[in-house]
Structures are given as C-alpha cells and as structure tokens.
Design a protein around this nucleic acid. Structure first.
Length: 416
RNA sequence: CGGGGUGUGGUGUAACGGUAGCAUACUUGCUUUGGGAGCAUGCAGUCCGGGUUCAAAUCCCGGCACCCCGACCA
C-alpha cells in the first residue's frame, strides 16, 4: 500500500485523555480511534494487526479440532433466564435493549447459553462428541469503569471456544490440548517469552482451579507469582501455602510480578448443559449432561499487550507475525527522480513476491518519514534515496536494531 | 458504584470576571530536502442547559463526557 493512499495520519502528541501506553501509541500512529470510553474503532493499520492475530488464533484452534462459527449479538432473554444469568443482580454488566414490540433483548457478553442451546439440535448421542466450536465475535460488557486503552473495553472482539465432551476425562484431555495451543498462540504473536500459564481461582463455575495466560507487564492489573524455571505462575487470588503444596511449587522459587490476563480457559462442568437440557445418550442408553469447557482470548487485549510490552521510546515495535506490513519502504527522492523511480520498482517487485509493503511515497521530509516509520513499527525499514543509489543498494534497518546496513538488491530480496 | 480531578480550534496548550492567544495539523505560494524545515498566507475553538454580573472560558447550580484511585471484572 502506498502511504499517500492510507487515510490515517500520525500525530506527534497523544490525546490528553489517554494515559495508557497502548492507546497513546496506537492513536498517535493511526491504528485506532477512540469513540468513547472503552470503545475503539480499528482503522486500516489496526485492522491489519487484528486480522493477523485472528488468523494465528484460527490456525491453532483449527489444529486442535475447533470448528469456526458465528453467533449473534442479540440475545433472547429466555435462555439466559434458564441459567439465572439474565438478572442484573447476578450479571451486572449486561447491555440490554428492547425490540420494537417492547420485549427485552440482550446484547451478548458471552455465549455459553446460546451455543449450548444451539447444540441441543445437534447433540443427541455419544457419537456426536467430542465437539469444539469457536468464533470471533464482538462482546459487549457494560464495565463500570473502562480503562487501560484497548485492554479493558466495553466492546471488544473475542475468540471464544466451547468444548463439549462425554466425560471429565475426555474434557481434561482437550483442556490440556487447548492450553498447549494457547501457549503456541502467544508464542506466535510475539508474547511467548513473557507469557505464563497461571493457576487461578475457579470463578463462579467450579470449585477447582482454572487457568489463565498472563503476560508480564507493569501495565497489568493482576498480580501473579512466577516460577520462571518451571514456566508457570500462580495468581495472587489462589496464592496460599496449601495451594502451593498441591501444585508442587516452592515459595522461594516464586517472584511477584504484575501481569495482563491475555487469555483464560476454564471448566464449566455440566452447569449449562444441565440448566439448558443439553444431554446425550451413551452406549448403555443412559442420558447424561454434556461436560463443557470455555476458552477465551480477547484480540484487542492481545494487541494492546504487545504494544505495552514491546514498544520503545520511539514507538511501536511489531513482531513480524502480526505487523501490519512486513516492509516499510521509504523513498526520499522527489516524485519522478531516479531514486523515486527505483523505489517504485522495488515496491512493485515486493508486491509481486507477495511481501506486504507500505511504500512511503509522500512528498514529506526525511525526518518526518523516519519518525513515522518508527512510530508505526513495521519490522523492516528500507530507504531508497540518492545516497543509496550512489552506493548501488538499499538501506535496510530492522525496527529492533539501531543501525542500518546497505544491501544489494539481490541480498535484499534474499531476505524473504 | 464510592472518592478525586478535568472539559478552550482536528491535536497539544495559554488567558485577574474585561479584545479568546500560542504551537501543531490543514490550505495556498516561494525557498528547502537523510532525523518531525523556513518565510508568508488562509481556515478553524471556550462540552450542554440555566443563573449571578454592565460584562463569564473564568464565579454559582444542574447535566453530560473524559481521566485517575478503589470496588467490580462470568
């Protein structure tokens, strides 16, 4: 894409009402637009990143047998009443609205109920399971206090997968598979080194533990105790001597850290299947409720966490796998000049090879282009100018490195 | 939801109750061209509703919005 075509602009200053680093940088660089507190639009650059994160998650979910679907935002209160989660006194962050006829309607904040209800039409026998369904869908949560930029929003895109198993053992097997897939996902998006599977409290679903995936960051809201050798952590909420003993962890190996919850997985047992009548008949003709699990990742939060943890003082530093473009090609020559024509040639060739490139063809000054490039954070910066032309090459600089190197055209294309 | 704070051009900021100014961005022109250029030019603003006052960005009341701390976070 030519940068002159991109409609977003960068800014030197962040809006005064944004304090979090992720929102400041993402707004300055033109990735997102704040609509209101906790509600952000994704602009072209931001959407590119979001889609890459989505695709990585999709690949890993498909790899463990997930089937993608898409459920509705508008929700029928009736099925939520069956699990007692319609009442505002029970679930306090509902957005609710009404049909023109006057009847109540919910705006979905999660999808255990609707999916369980859907599957009543598709699960009858033990032969119909195990079954794993997931979606990328917008959730609405009426948070009393939105904060931390895109990290805790009122409207956000979430991958939610639900597992349907014939028994506890079968459920556990998938649960562990999914945990492994999650670690892969966080690794692929560039958060692997900072992200820990973390033992947490059971929430309101079960009495046992659940698992969170926590990324170390001073911007985090959670406090966890990390065993860096064993690559595991314990959330403060379950940090007791007894629990540590159960988990086989020693207090002296644990370090207290602040962290961001980038994903979670938890057992649902038969809470929803029982309440909504999702049962199956086993080999012996006996009816039992389906054993369920739930597995979530907030895409915006992952994106925000990457900005929080990997940026530097000049701007964002995108890991290659999720960067909006792989190459930021900068022409310093005037339109029509020899170096500009050469830059256009490189641009065309990169595109022909299927390499995503943002071509800064704007008639602006070098300093501004460099500053923008660092702010936007594309992994590889390539400069074409009279100087590089004289040297018969291209100036290549990685966003993570300080120094630039002159490459010949051949060596440059060999990078990909 | 409790406590605190703040609302001024697109963005960042200034103005004792007395002419709303600066910077940036944007328009146009000339110069400049490897680290957010210079000169000139044009465009653009006091959150909303009341009140006090000769006079309100400024003081008072109400509302709304945003930020922070806490609580909450299926």
């Amino acid at each position: 894409m030519k940068q002159s075509f991109l409609f977003t602009k960068t800014r030197k200053e962040a809006p005064k009402d944004e304090v979090s680093k992720n929102a400041q940088l993402l707004i300055r660089a033109g990735f997102i637009h704040k609509e209101m507190a906790g509600v952000y639009s994704y602009l072209p650059l931001g959407l590119r990143v979001l889609k890459k994160i989505e695709q990585i998650i999709r690949e890993e979910m498909n790899a463990i047998g997930g089937q993608e679907m898409l459920m509705t935002t508008l929700q029928d209160p009736a099925i939520w009443q069956k699990t007692n989660r319609w009442d505002d006194a029970v679930v306090d962050n509902w957005f609710k609205t009404k049909l023109a006829t006057g009847s109540d309607l919910g705006i979905a904040n999660t999808h255990e109920e609707p999916l369980t209800n859907i599957l009543r039409n598709h699960i009858n026998s033990y032969k119909d399971m195990p079954l794993y369904a997931y979606q990328f869908q917008t959730k609405f949560r009426n948070e009393l206090r939105a904060k931390s930029g895109i990290m805790r929003a009122r409207e956000f895109l979430m991958k939610d997968l639900y597992s349907f198993s014939r028994g506890e053992e079968e459920f556990r097997e998938f649960y562990e598979k999914c945990a492994a897939a999650y670690l892969k996902i966080f690794d692929r998006v560039g958060l692997g080194a900072l992200t820990y599977r973390t033992v947490a409290a059971g929430g309101s679903f079960t009495s046992g533990f659940t698992d969170e995936f926590q990324t170390l960051s001073t911007a985090g809201e959670d406090i966890i105790y990390v065993d860096k050798k064993k690559k595991i952590a314990v959330n403060k909420e379950v940090y007791t001597d007894e629990n540590l003993r159960k988990l086989g962890l020693k207090k002296e190996d644990l370090v207290e850290e602040k962290s961001i919850e980038v994903g979670n997985i938890f057992p649902l047992g038969t809470k929803y299947s029982s309440a909504l009548g999702l049962v199956f008949i086993d080999k012996d003709g006996v009816k039992s409720p389906v054993v369920m699990g739930s597995y979530g990742i907030g895409l915006g939060r992952v994106m925000g966490t990457i900005v929080e943890t990997l940026s530097d003082e000049k701007g964002i530093v995108w890991p290659e796998a999720i960067a909006p473009f792989k190459v930021h090609l900068i022409s310093l020559g005037e339109k029509g000049s020899a170096s500009f024509v050469y830059a256009e040639k490189i641009y065309t060739e990169l595109q022909q090879k299927g390499i995503e490139v943002l071509f800064d063809d704007r008639p602006t000054r070098a300093g501004e282009k460099f500053a923008d490039s660092e702010l936007i954070g594309i992994p590889i910066r390539v400069v074409v100018s009279d100087k590089t032309l004289e040297k018969n090459g291209l100036e290549v600089k990685r966003r993570t490195e300080e120094t630039a190197t002159i490459f010949t055209e051949t060596d440059f294309f060999a990078l990909f």
